[in-house]
Structure formats: structure tokens, C-alpha cells
Design a protein around this nucleic acid. Sequence first.
DNA 1: TATTGTTATACTCTATAACTATA
DNA 2: TATAGTTATAGAGTATAACAATA
Lengths: 162, 162
Amino acid sequence: MGRPPDRGSDSADRRRLDHGLLPSLLGYVLQRAQTSVFADFSATFARAGEAVTPGEFGLLVLVDRNAGISQTRLAGALGIDRSTLVPILDRLQDRGLLARNRSPTDGRTHALALTAAGRKALARFSRLVRGHEKRVASGLSADETRTLIALLDKVHRAARSL
Amino acid sequence: MGRPPDRGSDSADRRRLDHGLLPSLLGYVLQRAQTSVFADFSATFARAGEAVTPGEFGLLVLVDRNAGISQTRLAGALGIDRSTLVPILDRLQDRGLLARNRSPTDGRTHALALTAAGRKALARFSRLVRGHEKRVASGLSADETRTLIALLDKVHRAARSL
DNA sequence: TATTGTTATACTCTATAACTATA
DNA sequence: TATAGTTATAGAGTATAACAATA
């Protein structure tokens, strides 16, 4: 007796799906790679007991390297609306990582900066990110990694100017 | 007179930002490339008067190639929770592109399928996607495109198994 | 008048937990 | 009991429109 060796249609139904043309589409493979890389980013930080998203990490790096930047300019660099940035900064500020200082030259703008705690946290985060990078690039040679980054940059530039 | 040729610090402040280590991080360049590719996808469809997201297109392809698939299995293939899928299918169904048919073998599951209108729409969408792909890959040679897709697939597989 | 940051509002994507119908 | 689909709910990310303070 027993089920046929090629597998019956049990409830879980583990048969491979037909993905059609999707695996040949740049947008699709891009998104798939990105999702798994972000998942490892999250797992890396969760294991270390830190709660930071890739977006928050990028924001912290930008503010660290461009102290005094305004919210509107930072939003522009991140490619989001300035109203979208407000609750994100609120959270980082509530966590004591970032300060909205008054600009000495323009009463309308905030001069963003990391706090001392923010700089210490960013150093910690950067160490975690280095390990994460090593892991996600572990399937590639150093040469392949360079090639991949260069090609992605080309795509970015080409697609941006459409 | 006029402003100094190297640009003063006017309100918009167009000086290049310092991106620190970000451009050397796989996750960052991945996300940047993906954002610009998705932007061209949206622009392509908007120009043609169609309203479809990359996610909806992928879902339609999957249902087209795997007619009769259940919601739970489709959610698994998309990497989302089955409850997340419900409003997405609602919209596609409201637009007349997709049907939730009764399964003849299991009263609990829906056998998903494209409607005739859905198949016609998908053919239209696929034509648009072909043009979109050509455009976003226009900065790369055919060889580079193949290499990029292969490397992204490697990253996906490596990162998935961490 | 124009710009900056903010708020109010809305929509999408995402998840968890609990419900219902079926198995 | 277990599974499929659904609902209720909540959080994050996104945007637009309008407002107060400042330029």
C-alpha cells in the first residue's frame, strides 16, 4: 500500500511552483536577494539584542557623516518626504541616539546630530554590519562581490535617469 | 557679481552628502538599485494607464502558471502571511482579474485562478514588463545582465540558508 | 511669498491572535 | 485536533494637504 512514490497531493502540497518568467526579471531577482539580505540583517541585530532596521542604520550613518544636516535635506538624501521623516526621527530621538539641535543661522531648520550615545551605538552597529556583510557575501568571491556592487550601481544610475 | 562658482550654501543646499561606508554595503546598493528599478516599473505602467505594482504582477504570474493553487500555498510562495494575502486578493478579485473558486476536493480551500479578463490583462502587463526590463538593463551588456542575475541568485541562496 | 518642520489623515504592507467552517 | 480562510487589530512606511514659525 502506501502513497505513490512521486508524492500525493497532501494538505501541505510541497510541489515546486512554476515561476514563469519571473526568475529572468531583474526587478524580481533584485527584490528576492534584497529580502534575504535584509532578513540576515535583522537576524544579526536581533541575535546581538539590538533593534535597528537597515533604514535606521543608513540614516544614522548619514547624520554621523553630515552633522548639522537639516531634516528636509536628509529626507531628500533618503528619497522620502520630509513629513515621513518626522516619526522616524522621533523614535531615534526618544532612544537618545539623535538630537534635533537649533540651527544658529536659520530659525526654521533643525541641525541634526548624533548624541554621544548615538555615536557609541553606531560603532556597535557598524561592527555587526561588517559581520553581516561577510555572511551575505560568503557565497561570492571577493571579485564577484566587487562585480556585483559595480553592476548594481550601473543599474541604479541607468534606471534613475529614465 | 553673482555667487562664487563653487556654490554658496543657499537654502536648498545641493552639496553632495558623505555616504560613508554605505556604497560598499551589499544591502545598501541592492536597495538603491531596487528602488530605481521599481520606480521605472511604476512609471511604465502609469504611462500606459495601468495600475499594477510589481508585487501584483508577480502574484498574477504565479496564479496564471499554477492555476488552482490555494491561498496558503500562494502566501508561502510569496513569503507573506496568509492573512496578509486576503486584502490583496480582494482587490484583484474586485478588479475582475482573479477568481476564488471552490475546490472540488477540499471545502476549506480556494482554488485560485485568473479570469479571462485577468489573462488578457496579464498579457498586456507582460508586454509592458518586457519594455521595462529592456530599459532598466539598458546600461548593461547582455553578458553583464546575465552575470548580474546569476550573482543575485547566488546571494539569495546564500543569505536564505543562514 | 517661500521654506521648514509638524500635524492630520489615508493607504498599503506587514504580522499575530482569534474566529468559522471544514477536514 | 488540525487546517484554510477570514477578521480584528496594531505597527511601520509611505504620501498629500494644510498649518505655524521663520525667512
